[in-house]
Design a protein around this nucleic acid. Sequence first.
DNA 1: CTGAAAGCGCTTACAG
DNA 2: CTGAAAGCGCTTACAG
Lengths: 348, 348
Amino acid sequence: MAETASRPERPESRYGNRPTMKDVAARAGVGLKTVSRVVNGEPGVTPDTERRVQEAIDALGFRRNDSARVLRKGRTASIGLVLEDLADPFYGPLSRAVEEVARAHGALLINGSSAEDPDREQELVLALCARRVDGLVVIPAGDDHRYLEPEIAAGVATVFVDRPAGKIDADVVLSDSFGGARDGVAHLIAHGHRRIGFIGDQPRIHTAIERLRGYRAAMEDAGIVVEEEWMSLGATDPDRVEQATRTMLSAPDPVTAIFAGNNRVTVTVVRVLAGLPRPVAFVGFDDIELADLLQPGVTVVAQDAAQLGRTAAERLFRQLDGASDAPERIELPTRLIKRGSGELPPAG
Amino acid sequence: MAETASRPERPESRYGNRPTMKDVAARAGVGLKTVSRVVNGEPGVTPDTERRVQEAIDALGFRRNDSARVLRKGRTASIGLVLEDLADPFYGPLSRAVEEVARAHGALLINGSSAEDPDREQELVLALCARRVDGLVVIPAGDDHRYLEPEIAAGVATVFVDRPAGKIDADVVLSDSFGGARDGVAHLIAHGHRRIGFIGDQPRIHTAIERLRGYRAAMEDAGIVVEEEWMSLGATDPDRVEQATRTMLSAPDPVTAIFAGNNRVTVTVVRVLAGLPRPVAFVGFDDIELADLLQPGVTVVAQDAAQLGRTAAERLFRQLDGASDAPERIELPTRLIKRGSGELPPAG
DNA sequence: CTGAAAGCGCTTACAG
DNA sequence: CTGAAAGCGCTTACAG
């Protein structure tokens, strides 16, 4: 055409070249607001106008920029989920449950791992707040969440799951770690064991402490004095757990049963026990896949990870819907599943 | 004070009441741009000015609104990951690998499940595009991705994983499903089996077809004519898979070995076989936890889910860094892990 | 039924 | 070293 290069108002040449509502309006020969109406399905547009706008949208490949929309509207229709490790099977059903509730409320899920590092948890949580997520579901790694106070005050809905918040008052959804562990250990005692080992996660983790407390309670209820060598708390890497298991079993007066504090520990202990000549009774906290097919089947204290996630997410959206209940602590029951390993008698 | 209610300019009373840079600027008695400089750590601010601004930031609990920032900058520093099911253990390590690469590039991960529904995949992908994610890692549910063409043209980096894109040219990272299945089935043949069953996922899923093709190739290489009743493709729910397994094993001329097309199928078949009096040889595609502890150990064709995710994410960020390589198809090798079940001879 | 103006909270480009 | 103006792409509130 006769157009010269000095026409910067040509929208097609903008950098990034995504068409905007302005481009659509220009092409359809209507105002910006009319495009907005069509895009959002608002009433009050002539069928003929609507058709013209729709044609322009299709021709340009326009898609509304929700980033801009969000800036105006205030809410982002997204929530953040901070957990320990996306690859840990325990968090799979939990994540999915949170996602399903979010989806039902039209929200997207931004997901991240803290790797059990409090600094990384904080970094991630604050990055999510900067993105202005509407709410947060947090499996905390740290034990001090005062850094969240200004965010919560500003309206970010927050629910903690699996472990309580530290030094702030907030909703929290937990499994009954204490009761579950106590029941599991009592089960071993009922089958004749008195020297029972406990192998758990690092003592700065709330669930690890609670489960150890349950272990101690069951032992005390049975009048058994617990020896220091029967308890091992630390990282859940296979090397440390294997070492702990072997140490307990090779002591002069070895334990005859072991209680494992979580799914990671369970997998390693079961693996070590499978290599031993004599059977050692075992109960693990958290169910694991195929536990029923091992010889013997693995007796576990199961928690409902999906229910944990669902409960937390529903609570979150209730906050977002304006409910102003006081922060609550919800504790879900655990379930003892007998499969054989926990019903073994003490070795001769 | 003497102030009347008719003073709408009081920033403290704004709805939503999050402080903005404007509020910080007012409190610190500086210009907006100076606040921006301090917040972003840009040079050219007097230590004294910086201190005043910082005090205002702390006093107000200001946190930069990245939503607004993003609108101006063009990039959102976030990527989307669309997979089939957040709860499937196969996707755990894959998700984490993608997250780690994203994190290394300063990006957040928005995560969602398609539930193997093409419409839901599209809905989710387009929602992510509307949020203007910088890139997408997609495990496709559908087989027609032309809906993504305008987005890709507009600059959304895209990599498909585990299954190829449909009807568009795009980067894809796969495991060698064909070769892996062929090797696994050949392994069974090498141990004397001729009547071998194949139980796989729905035939509209690319990996299901490829693995079936591998099965057929191995059988053909051995000169075995495959019978229709030896093959079952469909949903991976336990009921269907159990039914298929029992049917194959109770035929007049039953199969003596079974090859399973993925991890979900494997878990169910292994469970059924464990309940049978006679041993049936078995090889599964995808490794599963505790496979080594079952009796017999479960022989599998393992793929490296983490490597799949890592490779895809790295490729994505290379696209975002401006590399303009032609779309590529990257195929990762699988690995046969012998644990016992695949080395069983045919039953008498 | 339709659209021009202002503004969401930042950054960019520029001027002092 | 510092800041006023314009603009990112939408929606809101309003006027015709």
